[in-house]
Computed example of a mutant assay.
Amino acid sequence: MSEATASDAVACLVCGARAWGARLEARERQFGLPGSFTYATCTACGSLQLLDPPADLAPYYPSGYYSFDGGDDGGLVARIKAAASRYGVTGHGIVGRAAAMVAPPPTAGMHAWLARAGATATARILDVGSGGGALLRALDAAGYAHLTGVDPFLGGDARVGRVSLRRSTVEQLAREAHGAFDLVMIHHALEHVPAPRETLAAMRALLAPGGHCLVRVPLAPSWALERYADRWVQLDAPRHLVIPSERGLVALAAEVGLALDASRHDSEAIQVWGSELYRRDVTLSAGAREVGWLAKQRGRRFARRANAARRGDQGAFLFRAV
């Protein structure tokens, strides 16, 4: 990163300040799409923000974008993945536990957050930025009965089992269903929205009394960002509009009536092996399947150390409505 001052006309999406420090020039590297993008660090709260977002982000969410992947249709591998996913949301199952140790699923650790939030099988749960609903389908398989997902990039509304998916923003939903949910989650989607304060405020409005909000996001600064800079896999230019700092996120949540209950850094191996692909100018879409088990194990060891030092490149934050 080099030191420079961005335009005073751009306000930090996390804290509202207009004081910019280190800048970083980045490219889209998941698919190798064209364009160069400028990020800068807010000197007030430490968040990292895209200063020149494209007017139209739709081309940067192609059909192969991972959050819209409906998953495998069958076979042994699919069943093992499903077992690992169920283990992530329940904490039970010998096969799922073994599979999760080899290849942690996206649902890893969710059972602990569900328990901390008091989310029983009858809890009304909303997933913001749900994509194709993979997490909600895992909750459905685990016995949760009231499951809703919203995502403005879905092709349309749908229902799969007990999962209702809506092509909508959370702000639109908040105007229809005030106080309707016991747990509102947003997993690696807040960094994609152009107005995170409004998104968090809508999530707060959707919470019933005593409800909880679970936010999982990439974080700046982090060990991985410092090591890899513009090749950091979670920079994800230009889809990530703002990557909050921990203190910035907690302060922003407090402004909309959310008090922090618990948090942890939960970085994964991809921060290393994905960033190493980018160092070699290999896209994630082209190179991910070629990454070997040993490389992923090394990444997990780095992630564990970074998380223990609270220097991980992502975190989970459980807030309660106040």
Rank of each mutant, 00 (worst) to 15 (best):
A4W: 03
V10W: 08
V10N: 09
R18D: 11
R18G: 09
R23D: 00
A26L: 03
R27P: 05
Q30C: 07
F31H: 14
G35N: 10
T38Q: 15
Y39A: 03
T41D: 11
T43F: 05
A44L: 04
C45M: 04
P53T: 11
Y66T: 07
F68C: 03
F68K: 02
D69Y: 15
G70H: 10
G71F: 08
G71N: 04
D73C: 00
I80R: 09
A82V: 00
A82T: 07
S85H: 15
Y87S: 10
G93Y: 06
A99R: 08
P104G: 04
P104N: 08
T107Y: 02
T107I: 01
G109S: 08
G109H: 07
G109A: 10
G109N: 05
A112P: 00
A112C: 06
A112G: 13
W113D: 13
R116I: 03
A117T: 10
G118P: 04
A119N: 12
I125P: 02
I125F: 04
A134D: 01
L136Q: 07
L136K: 02
G143C: 09
A145T: 12
V150H: 03
G156C: 03
V160L: 15
V163E: 07
L165V: 10
R166W: 02
S168M: 14
S168T: 04
E171G: 14
L173A: 09
E176I: 01
D182A: 15
L183K: 09
M185Y: 02
H187S: 08
H188F: 06
A189I: 00
E191Y: 02
R197P: 00
L200H: 11
A201W: 04
A205E: 14
P218Y: 13
A220E: 08
Y228I: 02
Y228C: 06
W232S: 02
D236I: 03
L241P: 06
L241G: 07
P244A: 11
A251T: 14
S263V: 01
S267M: 08
I270C: 05
W273H: 14
E276C: 06
R280K: 13
R280D: 11
T283D: 06
T283K: 10
A288W: 01
R289Q: 09
E290Y: 03
V291Y: 06
V291F: 04
V291N: 11
Q297K: 13
Q297C: 06
R298P: 00
R298Q: 08
F302I: 05
R304D: 14
R305E: 15
N307V: 01
A308M: 03
A309L: 13
R310V: 09
G312V: 04
D313G: 10
G315F: 05
L318D: 09
A321W: 07
